[in-house]
């Protein structure tokens, strides 16, 4: 697909749109369908599209593998620590009320934070998994070239 000029041009417009859509469902999740998980998948899909068109190496330059891995852990930790904040501030685990003074504000803050955590984890893990699957083929081929039968 890399040679296809039209695709590249279309992608150049499409990918930012997909990313934007991802961000929208991430942060608009309380008002319309969507949330961290869907957003993560959409963002990852955008990145995968990028990788399919421009090549995996290029895509990995945007987000290196190691960064994905760290961000995946960061996402779940963000969730868990947000939960822990409830305990530290005098409530129960995952109790969002103590986080901010206003009740609604506190809940919304908590929901947005944990959804963001989910989103980050989902996006990075999906990218990571795709990276490994996609790279496997070239690794096999490299192996065949090294030791021809």
């Amino acid at each position: 697909m890399r040679e296809n000029g039209i695709l590249r041009i279309v992608a150049r417009f499409l990918i930012p749109l997909i990313m934007l859509f991802g961000l929208y469902i991430q942060f608009h999740g309380e008002y319309s369908p969507g949330g961290g998980f869907q957003a993560g998948v959409v963002v990852a899909a955008g990145w995968i599209l990028f990788a399919l068109i421009y090549g995996l190496e290029a895509a990995l330059k945007v987000i290196p593998e190691r960064v994905m891995y760290v961000l995946a852990a960061f996402g779940v930790l963000l969730y868990a620590i947000t939960g822990l904040m409830g305990v530290i501030l005098g409530g129960r685990y995952l109790d969002f009320y103590p986080l901010l003074p206003g009740e609604h504000a506190a809940q919304q803050f908590g929901i947005i934070t944990v959804e963001f955590g989910v989103g980050v984890t989902v996006a990075t893990v999906v990218m990571l998994i795709f990276t490994y699957f996609a790279r496997r083929k070239s690794e096999w081929e490299a192996l065949s070239e090294e030791e021809p039968e």
Binding site: G91, R92, D95, F96, Y97
Partner: peptide, 8 residues
């Protein structure tokens, strides 16, 4: 019996 409600 102990009970711990998450998120209160």
């Amino acid at each position: 019996t102990l009970s711990y409600p998450f998120g209160n």
